[in-house]
Write a protein that binds this DNA or RNA. Structure first.
Length: 223
DNA sequence: GCCCAGGTGGGTA
DNA sequence: TACCCACATGGG
């Protein structure tokens, strides 16, 4: 039943919105920066920070790593939490530049579980940041859970509002085939749904692509 | 002015 | 383990 819902949600969202072609970045390295910078932060703010980094010609691991703290913080300031995030970025860059010669391929090569563990060892990189990097920069098959995913699932009664990261991730990965492209699209479609009409302010709306499905399956908020 | 955003880590009971 | 809190900017 839950498995079925997870399949239905995907097909409805895909029909309604089409392929999303995520993540909004031009390179794997930019994915990493975005994944850290978007921690508890709107993407609009992240984009301003990334624009600063790009304009400074710093969208290259070795170049960014060579900046001093004040310079890096000035660039990423619009994304908020700039002291924490600059410290996290230096730790990521230590591994990427120091241990992997700046190569994203080396940085993300290996078994998914061991690459994930390596990422989680970096202070400031938690499960969502690690999984975003794994999926969108490294094409590893992990399903990304975020605040949008949690809000949507809890709205339609698929999980408790306080459901944990691992619990939600397991729910999706158990229901779906291990498919990088699908995990990629699915997460992007959930973000699109959340932004369009599953906002915090508006729990249910007429434009929701899931309303018929919710009614058929007798699940709130449309049941 | 007040609230909130695509999290994470540290402290306390 | 289970809460509680700091972290910071920019937009509604």
């Amino acid at each position: 039943m839950q498995t079925q819902s997870i399949h239905h949600i995907y097909s409805h969202l895909y029909s309604a919105y089409g392929p999303q072609q995520w993540w909004p970045a031009d390179s794997p390295f930019e994915v990493i920066l975005g994944a850290v910078l978007t921690q508890n932060t709107r993407w609009e703010n992240v984009r301003m920070a990334l624009d600063n980094v790009r304009a400074a010609g710093m969208l290259v691991p070795a170049a960014l790593a060579s900046l001093d703290e004040a310079e890096l913080q000035a660039l990423i300031r619009p994304a908020g939490f700039f002291r924490q995030k600059s410290a996290t970025l230096y730790r990521v860059l230590d591994v990427l530049v120091g241990q992997c010669r700046g190569s994203m391929d080396i940085f993300l090569a290996g078994e998914t579980s061991s690459v994930r563990a390596r990422l989680l060892d970096i202070k400031g990189v938690g499960p969502e940041t690690a999984d975003s990097i794994l999926l969108y920069a490294g094409a590893h098959p992990v399903f990304v859970i975020d605040a949008y995913t949690r809000r949507i699932c809890s709205r339609i009664g698929m999980c408790a509002p306080e459901a944990g990261y691992a619990e939600l991730q397991h729910m999706f990965m158990q229901a779906l085939p291990e498919d990088v492209q699908m995990y990629n699209e699915y997460h992007a479609l959930l973000v699109e749904l959340a932004k369009r009409c599953c906002t915090k302010k508006r729990p249910a709306c007429d434009a929701c692509p899931l309303q018929d499905m919710c009614r058929q399956l007798h699940i709130p908020p449309f049941a």
